[in-house]
Every structure is written in C-alpha cells, then in structure tokens.
Design a binder for these strands. Structure first.
Length: 615
RNA sequence: GCUCCGAUAGCUCAGCCUGGUAGAGCGUUACAUUGGUAAUGUAAAGGUCGUGGGUUCAGAUCCCACUCGGAGCUCCA
C-alpha cells in the first residue's frame, strides 16, 4: 500500500464521471473540507487487512503529532503500478475508514474520475509518503518467541538436600543474590538509575568501545581488549579440547529458505540480522548450532563413535536484541561464544556427558577467576524429565552447594528437556547468564543426524548444547563488574594476572637506565611475561600513578641500585616494595599463570610511543 | 520496539532556565627540570557546541525531526 499524506488548509473535489464499472454509486456533488489531512491511497497486490490496519494506525499516529483531527481517504491509483483488484481496494479502504477511531474521517468515492484543488500547509510534517507492506508492518519474530510468553512456568527454590520450596516460602535472608535472580526471572522487577560500572571501565582501560558507524551492540576492541579477549578465547578453547571437543569452523550466514533452517527458525527464539544477496534471503547465525548440525548430518556415525563432540568459538554470533536491551559488554548484537555440542546415543549416555560438562563449566569459570560465590544457578526442566531424573538434578544442585532457582514446565515447549545456567548478578542487581548446558531431544531428528545402533538400526542422537563460559564479552563484563565491586568495597581492582595487558611495568629513573630496562624486559618476554617500559619524561610519582591507574601488578623502578640480580619490585597487591632477582620474579609470575595461554605484549614496548586511547 | 533523560575541546564536565565575546580540570605540544615509589613547573595549541530543519535582527541556549548513548518498560532460548 502506498500513501501520500498531505496536511491541507483546504481540499475541494468533485466526481466527474465513473472510471470503472464497479465504481461506487453516489451522488456526484462537490465536497470541500478545511483543516484536513488528505491521504491519497493506492492499494497494491498482496495488501491485506493487517496492512490496512497498520496503515491507518500509522496515519493516526502522525496526525496526533501534527494535531489534526480530520482525515480524508482519497483513492488514488497513480501511486503504484502494481494495483490490487478494485474490489479488494474498496474493501480495504472501507476497513481503514471504519478503523479510524477518534478521527473525523471521510472518504472520496472509489472508481470515479475527480477534479480537485488542494492547498497544502507549509510546515515540515505537512507532506509525507508511506509504503506499507507486511515486512515493514512488524519485525518478523519466530513463533517460538511469540509463544514463549504463553508458557506456563512453575518456580521453586531447590535446596541442597533436594527439597523444592515455593518462591514465596523460601527464606532468602542469607541468599540475597539468589533472591535477585529469582525476582529478576519470575517477577521481572528491576530498578536501576545508573549505567553499570563496567561501561566506564571498558573505556578507561582502553578495552572496548561502541562503534557508532556500525549497528548498535557491535563493539570495537582496542589492543588491550583484543589481548584480553584473545587470552580468554584460547583458554576456553584449550579447556574444551582437553575435555574432548573437536574444533570446527562453520559459515556465519545461512539461507533462510533451506528446509532445516525454516523449522529451526521457529524453535529458536531470537531475532536475526538478514542480508539479501543475489535473490537469496540470508540470515546471520545466532549460535553455532546449525553449522554443527548440518556438519554432523553428513557424518557417518556409529554408536561406537558416541559421544562425539563438535566445538566452535563463534566470532561472531548475531542476535538482533531489542535496542533498549543493549548495554556495554553485557548484552550485544554481535558476540563471541564458545559452543560445544555433544551427540549421545541415548539418555543414560547424555546424562553421563551432562555431568562431565557441568564440571567442565565450573572449572572453566574458576580458571578465569569467576568462583562459585560469584554466580547463582538456575535449572529448568519439564515435569516428566524431573520425575524420571530426580537423582541427577539433586546431585547437580548438591555440587553447587547452595540453593538454586528452579523453573518447571508442565509440558515440553522448547527443544530441550533440561537446561541449566550460571547467572552473574551485577552491581545493579541484574542477572546475566554465563555457562549453560541443555539436553536437546528434538534437533537430532530435525536435522536428520543419524547413527547406527547395536541392532544396525538408524537412530537420532540426543544432543547437548554447552557453552562452558558463556559469551566471551560477557565474561569480560563479569570480570570488570567484579573489579568494580572490589573497588567500591575498598580493595584494589584488578584483572587476573594472565589477562593483564601489561604484567610488569619498568620505570627507568632517568634516560641512562633505559638500556638496563630493555635488558630486563627482553628477559621477561623471553619467559612469556608481558613487560613494558615507561620511558616518558615524567616524574617517578607520576609514572607510578599512571601504572596504578592501568591496574599493573608489578612496577619496577630502575636506577643506580638495580641490576638483573637485584630488582626492587612494587607489588600492587600490597603497595610494598620487595627485593628479588630476575629469576625469582619470573618464577613468582609464572607460578600464578601456570597452565594459562600466553600472548605477547600487544602494545609498543615504550610508553612514549603509544597513542592515547582514552575514550 | 515504547516512554523518559542526555549529547559542548582527545577525556570528564560547567555554560542553556533568563538568546548577544565558548569556559575549567585532565590529556596533548614546546621549553625548563633527571627524579627513588599514586599527580614537577611555565607556556601554547586545541571547539562546524551530535546532524538536519524552524522561530528570531541574533540560537550552544527556545521549538521540531533524526542519529547515537543511558534509565525504565517489554524482552533476554
């Protein structure tokens, strides 16, 4: 439907003769209206009642803005070369007329040649055109997203002895964060009046920032941020490979008309980015599921191969979250997610695998520096699954050692029967999911993934979907929020040593000690330690202050008293100075990093050579 | 997506209500200073006041739209 909308001082029209046979029967007399919005309307092929209703509501909205009550609907075929049949057009126009509540509406006769005079007002909003199609009407949402709100959930708290208590009966006194999560999830009650502290930190530490030239929720990462992110990515990948995941890489965009996509689309409640290219309607992946399922579909699998695990670190997964939801690194539209699927031959094997991955997820978080006290667990399952697997669920809750939030569904609505996640509760009381795992009983069949069982019969595997850490950006958000809590409670904020962009800062007292500084930094980098040198012509006090502001753990002032075998070390943890030789320093640092990955310094060695990335 | 709030120097912000010469601190640059564990001194440069339009003799300031950011709502398998 195409509409030309004009805010007029006056319109005068007069039907002169019938243009088509099906023209309305009217008395052809001249009509004049003052202070009116005239909408010239062309109804096009494929227009329907929804489009007509949408059109009239858009018209109502803009009329409210310009403060006009009178509307004239004026059939006007010349706006389009793809017209609907006259009967459809007339009925939709009549529908629009009847839907114009609160407006003083009239309609020019359909099917007549008319002469007319208009005097259009001169303000900026007086003229506008609208094209209304089913696409522009409403964003496409998957049916899963639409029906999600209709699901009936029952909420409980499960204590470590396996008892399920109703939310309002549970005593949250010593479980404040769990209470936040429970309220957050079940009642949806929140109140915050300031941005989360990690947003300022990610800018101040030159980690990441918004990129206005991209879409909202697509961040850019500066050298510091990229280093931290890369370290985390390597760490999680190493851990998954140790557990038995095989790393793959799959496309980031898919044809939405591919048969396996169409049905999955409607089962995964996420909004997509779409791209039209050469007649194809492509969408950007919102997880690694499809890629891995399509791959597994083409594998020839025997029950002897299972469990089999595919892993991908998606850079990126895309979810077009509502704009109002996007905040810093907590919630993005493009994010990096480790995604590991385990294909299992039956439920007992899936349950065994589930246990392993639960432990994996806890170890991964703990290695990053996010401990059990930092998160609250939620577990969700169908009633049937609970009745058949009580022991597993209670055992899982016991491992966490504190009460967890339970959501139970009477019937299975999603493709999984069980799902858990760890939620970090931030300084604003907001919950964000980190690690998660699900037991999927549907997609093996949907994607035609088959293995041959002991009886030589094809079967569909049960699939577990695990992200052992959750989105990498969200892990960074968690670390920054934790640091901010530390700072608020009087402790020095810091990142884990293995993630620090600079681990050791050398400060030569004056220029003549720069060479010694370079020798020490060489020695440290040979030992996989990130050291740099503040060679700027600033006072010692100033340079120490700047290093402290960058959260650098070890600061070494280098002057007459120092040599390779005698270093004076200022430790940020204590603010005290200690003396040791270079070997002792290397050992102290490496012993804290032990099995973590290493990336070399991602900055110029000399601070004087660095641009300021203060945003 | 909706409602409300915001956008001024590289950064953090003042000025806006009540229209008339664009301000501070930090940072940057230059010079001096060569230092011992959280801010050395002096000087200079640096701004289409987010974008577009309107009102006005005159708009950073008042009005409208848009973009981006924030809070709330909705949402977050």
């Amino acid at each position: 439907m195409r509409i030309l909308q004009l805010h007029c001082d006056n319109i005068t029209y007069e039907p002169t003769k019938k243009e088509i046979q099906s023209a309305e029967e009217i008395d052809p007399k001249s009509v004049s209206i003052d202070e009116v919005v005239v909408c010239f309307v062309a109804v096009e092929k494929d227009d329907n009642e929804d489009i007509a209703k949408d059109a009239i509501s858009q018209i109502q909205e803009s009329m409210k803005k310009i403060g006009c009550q009178k509307l004239l609907l004026y059939p006007y075929a010349h706006l389009s070369s793809n017209l609907a049949s006259p009967s459809t057009a007339l009925s939709l126009l009549k529908l629009m007329e009847s839907q114009s509540e609160g407006l003083d509406v009239s309609r020019a006769p359909f099917g007549w040649t008319k002469s007319y005079n208009v005097k259009v007002k001169g303000h900026p909003l007086a003229e506008s055109s609208k094209v209304i199609t089913s696409d522009s009407k409403k964003e496409k949402t998957s049916t899963a997203l639409e029906s999600e709100s209709k699901i009936k959930s029952y909420w409980y708290i499960m204590t470590t002895d396996g008892e399920m208590q109703e939310l309002d009966k549970f005593n949250f006194t010593s479980h404040k964060k769990l209470e936040s999560l429970a309220k957050y999830e079940s009642v949806k009650k929140r109140s915050v009046d300031e941005p989360p502290p990690h947003v300022a930190l990610m800018k101040k530490l030159a980690i990441a920032d918004y990129e206005q030239a991209s879409d909202q929720g697509n961040m850019r990462f500066f050298p510091n941020g990229r280093l931290i992110k890369s370290q985390l990515e390597q760490y999680v990948t190493n851990m998954v490979k140790q557990y038995g995941g095989y790393e793959v890489e799959t496309p980031i965009m898919y044809d939405s008309h591919h048969p396996s996509m169409e049905s999955y689309f409607n089962r995964f409640p996420a909004r997509q980015y779409s791209i039209d290219s050469e007649g194809k309607h492509l969408f950007l992946r919102f997880a690694a599921c499809f890629g891995q399922f399509l791959m597994a579909h083409d594998f020839q699998l025997s029950y002897k191969n299972l469990p089999y695990r595919l892993y991908e670190l998606t850079r990126y997964s895309f979810r077009r979250e509502q704009s109002g939801e996007l905040v810093g690194l907590r919630r993005l539209r493009a994010f990096t997610m480790p995604d590991c699927h385990a294909f299992c031959k039956d439920m007992p094997q899936a349950v065994e695998e589930f246990r392993t991955r639960f432990d994996l997820s806890r170890n991964v978080l703990s290695g990053i520096g996010i401990e059990q006290d930092d998160y609250e667990m939620a577990i969700r399952f169908t009633e049937d699954f609970y009745n058949e697997n009580k022991e597993l669920i209670i055992e899982t809750v016991k491992k966490i050692g504190k009460p967890v939030l339970v959501e139970m569904w009477k019937e299975r609505f999603f493709y999984f029967v069980l799902k858990w996640e760890f939620n970090y509760i931030d300084n604003s009381g907001k919950a964000s999911a980190l690690s998660t795992d699900q037991i999927d009983v549907e997609n093996g069949d949907r994607y035609g993934i088959e293995f041959i069982d002991e009886q030589n019969k094809p079967q569909n595997p049960i699939i577990l979907h695990n992200s052992p850490s959750g989105a990498i950006e969200r892990v960074m958000y968690t670390l920054l929020e934790k640091a901010s809590t530390d700072s608020r409670e009087g402790r020095k904020p810091q990142l884990p040593l293995w993630l620090a962009p600079t681990q050791v800062r050398l400060i030569p007292l004056k220029e003549e000690f720069l060479d010694l500084g370079k020798k020490i930094s060489d020695l440290l980098s040979k030992n996989n330690i990130r050291a740099d040198i503040d060679d700027r012509n600033e006072s010692i006090g100033k340079r120490i202050r700047d290093a402290e502001k960058e959260w650098i753990r070890y600061i070494l002032v280098i002057g007459e008293k120092e040599s390779i075998s005698k270093l004076t070390i200022r430790d940020r943890n204590t603010s005290n100075e200690r003396e040791m030789n270079s070997d002792e320093l290397v050992n102290e640092i490496l012993s804290q990093i032990n099995d973590k990955p290493f990336s070399s310094l991602n900055l110029p060695l000399l601070v004087s050579k660095r641009p300021i990335i203060q945003v």
